[in-house]
Deep mutational scan, measured.
Amino acid sequence: HNLTITQGKLFFHYNPKLCLSEIHKMEEVSGTKGRQERNDIALKTNGDQASCENELLKFSYIRTSFDKILLRWEPYWPPDFRDLLGFMLFYKEAPYQNVTEFDGQDACGSNSWTVVDIDPPLRSNDPKSQNHPGWLMRGLKPWTQYAIFVKTLVTFSDERRTYGAKSDIIYVQTDATNPSVPLDPISVSNSSSQIILKWKPPSDPNGNITHYLVFWERQAEDSELFELDYCLKGLKLPSRTWSPPFESEDSQKHNQSEYEDSAGECCSCPKTDSQILKELEESSFRKTFEDYLHNVVFVPRKTSSGTGAEDPRPSRKRRSLGDVGNVTVAVPTVAAFPNTSSTSVPTSPEEHRPFEKVVNKESLVISGLRHFTGYRIELQACNQDTPEERCSVAAYVSARTMPEAKADDIVGPVTHEIFENNVVHLMWQEPKEPNGLIVLYEVSYRRYGDEELHLCVSRKHFALERGCRLRGLSPGNYSVRIRATSLAGNGSWTEPTYFYVTDYLDVPSNIA
């Protein structure tokens, strides 16, 4: 807008934040220059609390790290170098490059900038070799853009010569660093050979998330399962459950009422301010606690030095998902009996873990797994792929695949051998790939016309006998059925096997 004052003059007093240069501009645009008398524009009460600059400061050096910015700028000295009290560095987070010096300023003089007072450097006698002032900004957020400017702080001049310097606002972004852990990993099994893994992005990506790394490792069953005799009275049979499938998407929606109208769909109840505040506090606490764990609990591995020492970490090797089922080394339970199943799973520490690289999504279907087997899954978020990966501390989750139908069934015939004193040795093959492992066998036998009897055969007993022995049988026709019990439950009964026990007292003698 054009402003013209045809008559009258300007009068400025007691404006401590208004620089004289701005008042002189007002004289020019209003056409009143030359009308004012000496005392109409006070030299001592206008701009006496402001830094009124008329020179431009330029930054000469900028260096960044993930949490620091090192700045240096060209030296500046007023005509009387004693008038320079120091520099004021202003900075704040700036997602967009549209910041002005006066953003967030209120009537009390406060604003949204963080201000650092910096002492002037030592003055050199040689004007050509003056030290460049600077400042190291610490405690910054990774991968965050900051708006920065600097200006001088000078003393009051009796001659009211307006001098000083100020830089333009520059924008500097800190470097990326390792992201925080992925949030809320959930693993479920939808079949006997697959596990579905879902997660949420890290709360602090500290860069642009480029991919996720998912490692999985087959877990050995508890050692007590191999040692305890679950045929003993009072000892509860062990059981394991597989990871249940995901709930429906509708039930997972946030901010939804727990109660549904019987007449149909209901609208979600909005969260109160107290609920939102509580969630923010919980989120802040979780982030602080995660940072504490990362800094205190997890110790970084030592990389190899120039002395030739090897990095103890196993090298990563990509495998196809079809090879995942046989990740671990199978060892027989008892070496003397080769027909026992290889369900003991000690994992070799030198073995390469299978892994998958996930790009542009937060889910993965891990296939080719062994049925009813526990897996430990390790999830890392990465925001750099080359020249070397920059990934987060791992988040861990466990899951067990679903049982395989008929995996616990005894394959092959049940054979028998009759000894003296009416002892019958029953023999059968253990299931080759049971659900988890076989903890015991149930032997059901009966003599024709009598009630059915049951015998429990422990895992250890089966390994020693290759089956079991029935003792003290009365003469007669017998039928026997056997079924295995694994961590997933009972298998199917075998087809009945028949044998006849004679009275050993009636056996004919070869003595003449």
Rank of each mutant, 00 (worst) to 15 (best):
F419M: 04
F462D: 02
F289I: 10
G322W: 13
Q256T: 08
G368K: 05
Y259W: 08
V414W: 01
T272W: 05
L232S: 09
E227V: 10
H352T: 04
Y498T: 05
A405S: 10
E430S: 14
R370L: 15
T307S: 10
E282D: 15
D503F: 03
T210R: 03
Y478G: 00
T401S: 05
E282P: 12
E356P: 07
S243A: 12
V358M: 03
N435E: 01
H425P: 01
P508V: 11
A488V: 11
E217N: 15
V327D: 11
T485V: 03
L321I: 06
K406A: 14
S257Y: 10
S320T: 10
T210K: 15
N339I: 14
K287V: 14
H352C: 11
L277Y: 03
T343G: 11
S257N: 06
A381I: 02
N477V: 02
H425I: 15
S509M: 07
I377N: 01
G467R: 07
A335Y: 06
C382R: 00
E417Q: 13
F285P: 10
F285A: 14
E465P: 01
C391N: 01
D311Y: 15
R471V: 15
G374T: 12
R286K: 14
G412R: 12
T497K: 05
E404K: 11
T307I: 02
F226W: 03
H425L: 09
S341W: 13
S363I: 10
Y212F: 15
S320E: 09
F499C: 03
D222C: 13
A463S: 09
I276A: 10
E247L: 11
I366V: 12
F289R: 08
V365A: 14
Y441T: 02
A381Y: 03
R466M: 10
L470G: 00
S239I: 07
Y259P: 08
L437Y: 14
D408P: 00
M427P: 01
D409V: 09
S344D: 03
G476A: 02
Q252F: 14
S492C: 06
G322K: 06
L437C: 08
M402Q: 15
K406T: 12
E420Y: 13
L453M: 09
Y478R: 00
A484I: 03
S474Y: 13
R316T: 09
E420D: 11
H211C: 01
L321S: 09
K287I: 07
C231S: 03
T210L: 11
V423L: 03
I438N: 03
A405K: 14
F355I: 11
T307P: 13
Y500A: 12
V397G: 09
L321V: 10
N422G: 05
D261S: 12
P312V: 14
N206T: 04
V414K: 01
D250V: 07
F289A: 05
L232C: 13
R301G: 04
E452S: 03
E388I: 11
G234T: 08
S315Q: 10
H352L: 07
V424P: 01
D204Q: 03
P205M: 13
P387Q: 11
A463T: 13
G322R: 06
K432T: 12
G489N: 14
E350K: 06
K361V: 06
D250I: 15
V414Y: 01
R301N: 02
S251P: 15
S344L: 09
S342Q: 14
P434K: 04
L293P: 04
S344Y: 08
Y396K: 12
R319P: 09
F355W: 12
M402L: 10
G322A: 13
V501R: 02
L228A: 13
D506C: 04
N490K: 04
T485I: 13
E420A: 06
E495F: 15
E247V: 12
P300T: 13
F226K: 04
S320K: 14
T502F: 04
L487K: 05
A335L: 13
C231E: 02
A381P: 01
R353M: 08
K432Q: 07
G264L: 14
R376F: 14
T340D: 13
Q384W: 15
D311L: 14
H371V: 06
A330V: 10
Y504R: 04
L369M: 09
P244N: 14
D204P: 03
T288K: 15
V480G: 01
Y500Q: 05
A336D: 14
N435Y: 00
H416V: 12
G489T: 06
S344C: 06
T373Q: 15
R218I: 09
E281S: 08
A488M: 08
S342I: 03
G207M: 13
R400V: 09
N422Y: 09
A395T: 06
V424S: 01
N255M: 13
L228P: 06
K361G: 07
P431S: 03
D409A: 05
E442M: 04
D506T: 15
L228S: 11
E260S: 08
G264W: 11
E310V: 03
G325R: 04
L321M: 11
L277S: 02
R376Q: 04
S474H: 08
A309T: 03
Q256K: 11
S315M: 12
G207A: 02
P387I: 11
E258T: 14
H425Q: 08
S305N: 13
R240H: 07
S363M: 03
G467M: 04
P270V: 10
R218V: 03
P338Q: 12
F285S: 10
Y375I: 05
S341Y: 02
R318V: 14
A394P: 07
R447K: 05
G491L: 01
R319G: 15
S474T: 09
E350S: 12
D204S: 15
R390Q: 07
Y498W: 06
S320N: 11
E442Y: 15
Y212S: 03
L225Y: 04
E282N: 02
E282W: 15
L470D: 01
S203P: 03
A407Q: 15
R400D: 05
C267S: 10
N477D: 07
E221H: 15
V414P: 06
S458G: 05
P349Y: 12
N422A: 15
E465A: 09
F226E: 11
V439T: 10
T288I: 15
Y504I: 12
Y498C: 10
Y230K: 14
E417R: 11
F372C: 10
H416Q: 09
D450L: 04
S248F: 15
T502N: 12
D409Q: 07
E433T: 11
S444V: 15
G368Y: 04
S274I: 02
W242S: 14
P245H: 10
E249S: 10
G476K: 00
P238V: 04
N255L: 03
R483N: 01
T241R: 10
F372H: 12
E442P: 01
S223D: 12
S262D: 14
R481L: 10
R459C: 15
A488D: 02
T386E: 11
P314F: 14
R353K: 06
R466T: 05
G322F: 02
S320W: 06
E265R: 14
S509A: 08
V424Y: 05
E282F: 13
